[in-house]
Design a protein around this nucleic acid. Sequence first.
DNA 1: CGACTGACTCTCT
DNA 2: CAGAGAGCCAGTC
Length: 121
Amino acid sequence: MKSPRDPSAADPRHVRIRDTVRAIPPGKVASYGQIADLAGLPGRARMVGRVLGLTPGNASIPWHRVLRASGELAFPAYAPDALRQSALLHAEGVEVKNNRVNLRRFRWQPDLAELLFRLDT
DNA sequence: CGACTGACTCTCT
DNA sequence: CAGAGAGCCAGTC
């Protein structure tokens, strides 16, 4: 029962973004812009960050697998969120060095078949 | 409607 | 490779 004054929860764009982030497999990462593109929202990288920020930390969404296009974490090194994020990444085998990840090694690059399969189900 | 802000990205130096 | 600048877009005031 959501009031009509709370559009964010029902915004189809937000839903798409969260679904796409959930499609990132463990041990892999993606950039904000990449998620926006895959979600059918090119140019909305900032919106991806916004949605993740609105999402409660206890929600079942791998927010830690999303980084900047440079491979850097979106938070300043040593910030609580950055420490938490790198810990989660390390836990699944992703190396975080100097607050950044080597995208050449850990970037998630789904082909069309994998993408459709993961977004479906 | 205009000004500001920000879990962004690209280009140029 | 670090910094500066500009572009972009949704949300807030």
